[in-house]
């Protein structure tokens, strides 16, 4: 328990260091642009692929589980839209990003720690936590909502393509279904969740990587811990946010 509280204290102390005033805006801007590409843009491919197949599978499963004449087929489109919007695009994408981006952040910072690159920054008088981690926050908080919107769009396209190709729904019914009793707030809900999840992934992974002690083995462990802890916190906050935002 004492160890947990000590770690929690260190986590908030790190966040305080991260969110202090940047030393030189120009250098931070350059670093942020780099992180936007590295953590954000480079994740578009994996998110698009997973979302496409996720949408396709949700459509087919919904179709095969609602094969009843009393259900209108456009409900398939509606079910796909709400499943993707409310849960899959924000939560599943966040879990995937916890694996890709989280392990990347933890291993990058961990390697910099064990090779004394972070010490080198400190010796120069640079706030290493702010210089290394703040741009990652900016990048993920800015780009992850975009990734979620991409995921929603590609997921629905995947669902439409799978549904029409397999012949379980017509194109017209699917399009009608995804427009039927649409609640715009669901998009806001998905974006809010994405922002919280982006904060969790970046802060937990940075904390694990930044505080590595030892060598390559510890860097690997930190990377694993980053993914596991981020994923568990994402699932926990998913429940909390759903209760808070949809009740």
């Amino acid at each position: 328990m004492i160890r947990f509280l000590s770690q929690l204290g260190n986590y908030f102390l790190l966040l305080k260091k991260v969110f202090s005033k940047p030393e030189k805006a120009q250098v931070y801007y350059r670093q942020t642009m780099h992180e936007l590409v590295f953590l954000g843009f480079n994740s578009v491919g994996i998110i698009a692929i997973i979302s496409f197949f996720m949408g396709a599978v949700i459509t087919l499963q919904t179709a095969y589980n609602t094969e009843n004449p009393i259900y209108p087929t456009y409900l398939i489109g509606l079910g796909v839209r709400d499943s993707i919007l409310l849960e899959f695009s924000s939560t599943i994408s966040a879990l995937i990003l916890a694996g890709k981006v989280g392990s990347n952040i933890a291993s990058e910072l961990g390697t910099m720690r064990v090779t004394e690159q972070i010490d080198a920054l400190e010796i120069m008088g640079v706030n290493s936590a702010s210089y290394l981690i703040l741009p990652k926050f900016v990048a993920t908080l800015f780009f992850n909502p975009i990734l979620t919107l991409i995921s929603i769009s590609v997921g629905i396209v995947g669902g439409w393509l799978a549904g029409t190709t397999a012949g379980v729904i017509t194109s017209e019914d699917f399009i009608y279904g995804i427009q039927y009793s649409f609640i715009p707030y669901y998009v806001t809900y998905a974006i809010i969740k994405t922002l919280v999840f982006a904060f969790i992934i970046t802060s937990v992974s940075s904390f694990q990587g930044y505080n590595v002690e030892g060598g390559a083995l510890e860097v690997g462990r930190a990377s694993t811990k980053a993914v596991v802890y981020s994923s568990v916190l994402i699932l926990l906050f998913n429940v909390i946010l759903t209760q808070l935002l949809l009740s």
Partner: peptide, 29 residues
């Protein structure tokens, strides 16, 4: 610390930067 320079055992050059960028970094900062 701005008046300090340190040579680390493993050199601690920034992996993502080339030679010029490494030396230029304190000047940029």
């Amino acid at each position: 610390r701005k008046e300090m320079g340190m040579l680390f055992q493993g050199s601690a050059l920034f992996d993502s930067m080339n030679v010029e960028e490494n030396v230029r970094f304190p000047l940029d900062m």
